[in-house]
Design a protein around this nucleic acid. Structure first.
Length: 507
RNA sequence: GGCCCGUUCGUCUAGUGGUUAGGACGCAAGGUUUUCAUCCUUGAAACAGGAGUUCGAUUCUCCUACGGGCUACCA
């Protein structure tokens, strides 16, 4: 790419950013970095009625946590600022006027009620109401194409509400190029004359978007597929302004794992997995939605998973660092079809990332959990514990459940296992085992193994008869790492104590 | 309803006219671990349907079906 690559992520601050939005941001980020370009954040807050105050900060925080921060945006490197459309409000009127002057747009005075009536009317007759040349000059709509100039001026100066609509050309087949889909063709006769400028003095998405992308010198627009239907309008707007159009890439949607439709913000907690990167508190209702961060996912695992949803490198590699993703990313390998989201695969990625972390890192992450359980222990001990249990874990949050017996005596014994493994004779056997253990001077893995195994062999009983109840005594259930590791970790005293506890409780 | 986009194992996907249709998640079986998990091996599992083009279609074209998106003075 010889030109200067500038891409933007342009969310609307109406709430938390969900994973579909994060993926759009990610693909923009990867594309920008791949081409040594700039990743811009623009806040599209032209709809005052849907504005949510904490949303913008949430978006910034989410990108930060994902490690895909913007290069340019609100409060950062403001070369093309401001980056909030509400702060650019005065700008758009001028461009709407330009279109009006050139004859690419017109005033419309129809009220929402009148338009609804037209739509209903058409529907009743089995027709589709389109606000374009089919209807606009037939006298049933009130706009500057049918009204005289005096009438229009009169209405405006009388304070009558109006919008500015785009005047879609007639009888033309637009052939557009999409970077992931190839050619897209649309007949302009099927297009609505979209509102560009609202009666509240704000531009609509369509106008603001085109004006800002142009002014901010955006080279590639990478956005969700839900925008594909407005590509013709946007293409026409660039033509009307006589501006060079950026290249477009429309990303397929992320679908619900089960059932129908695209994943939406409301799905998350209902379906049992988060749809947001970070926990989010709804300002109005106070409802709290789960986040991947709070659920214990590593951000790099989360990003790795998202990158492979709708994109693939064409090789069999699945684990990518962010740098590797930047290196491998290519819009041409983005898939055209929608992808169902998979919570299972997300967990798998997290497990992979957890296994890759060092014991030092994991021990540090484990510390708060230990504190929560009122356990303090020395660092080397904790690291040793982590090394013994990490391969069983998917999340750091699993650690305590997998290792509590390294820090405190079991307080209960799993009933089913006890019933099966603790027979009538087990008590006596365990008592004898205690005496064996007591005689081991240097309580190392090797010595414990030699002595205990030797004793079992001499007794001519099955290993299971001893080892299973022993495990039950030390762990409280039939799970966990090698028993000799556990015994030497907790020490001779605790081992004996736990066996005696078990004898008292189970015999 | 109209317009647009899509359709390979249950899911994510590789595949660009000739392949035993490959990988991953998940699932199942076996092995390892005298436990559990990990790990290893193996297995089941897919080209939506129909026409055409072609010596030959998963791959190209058309139709149908299905899925998805949009259809607001929301983005």
């Amino acid at each position: 790419m010889s030109e200067n690559v500038r891409v933007r992520f342009a969310p609307s601050p109406t709430g938390a950013l969900h994973i579909g939005g994060v993926r759009t941001a990610l693909f923009n980020y990867l594309f920008a970095k791949k081409h040594k370009g700039t990743f811009v954040l623009r806040i599209e807050d032209t709809d005052q009625t849907r504005y949510v105050a904490n949303a913008e900060q949430y978006i910034v925080d989410a990108l930060e946590w994902c490690n895909i921060p913007f290069d340019e945006g609100p409060g950062k490197n403001e070369k093309f600022g401001p980056y909030r459309q509400s702060e650019r409000k005065d700008l758009y009127k001028k461009y709407a006027d330009e279109l009006l002057e050139k004859g690419w747009a017109y005033y419309a005075f129809d009220t929402s009620e009148e338009l609804d009536a037209h739509r209903k009317d058409h529907e009743a007759n089995g027709k589709t109401f389109i606000y374009n040349w089919h209807n606009r000059e037939k006298g049933r709509l009130v706009n500057s194409l049918v009204l005289s100039e005096e009438e229009v001026q009169q209405k405006i100066s009388a304070g009558e509400k109006y919008v500015v609509r785009f005047k879609t050309p007639q009888d033309e087949v637009l052939v557009m190029q999409d970077e992931v889909r190839g050619e897209v063709k649309v007949n302009t006769n099927t297009l609505d004359d979209k509102v560009l400028f609202k009666s509240d003095g704000m531009p609509t998405y369509h106008l603001a978007n085109i004006v800002d992308d142009h002014l901010m010198e955006i080279s590639h627009v990478i956005r969700g597929e839900e925008w594909l239907p407005s590509l013709p309008l946007h293409t026409l707007l660039y033509r009307a302004f006589e501006w060079e159009s950026p290249k477009f890439a429309h990303l397929s949607l992320i679908l619900k794992p089960v059932g129908k439709g695209k994943l939406s913000k409301r799905d998350g907690d209902k379906l049992g997995f988060p749809v947001f990167p970070l926990e989010y508190t709804n300002e109005k209702t106070g409802d709290v939605s789960r986040g991947y961060r709070e659920d214990g996912y590593f951000s790099d695992a989360f990003i790795n998973m998202l990158a492979l949803l709708g994109w693939n490198p064409g090789t069999e590699q699945e684990l990518f660092s962010l740098e590797q993703l930047v290196e491998a990313f290519d819009l041409a390998r983005v898939s055209k079809s929608g992808a169902k989201f998979s919570p299972d695969k997300t967990k798998w990625f997290n497990q992979q990332y957890l296994q890759q972390k060092t014991e030092e890192e994991l021990a540090t992450l484990f510390l708060p959990l230990l504190e929560k359980n009122n356990v303090s222990s020395d660092r080397t001990y904790i690291q040793k514990v982590v090394s013994l249990i990490k391969e069983r874990a998917v999340f750091v949050d699993d650690f305590w459940g997998l290792s509590s017996f390294f820090f405190e005596n079991p307080t209960e014994y799993e009933a089913k296992a006890a019933k099966k493994q603790w027979k009538e004779t087990t008590g006596d056997l365990m008592t004898e085992l205690v005496t064996v253990i007591e005689t081991i001077e240097d309580f190392s893995i090797e010595n414990a193994q030699t002595d205990i195994k030797g004793w079992i062999t001499s007794k001519e009983i099955g290993f299971g008869k001893v080892m299973q109840p022993l495990r039950l005594s030390l762990v409280g259930k039939l799970a966990g790492p090698d028993l000799f590791e556990i015994m030497t970790m907790i020490g001779k005293e605790a081992t004996i104590k736990r066996i005696q506890n078990a004898i008292a409780a189970l015999s």
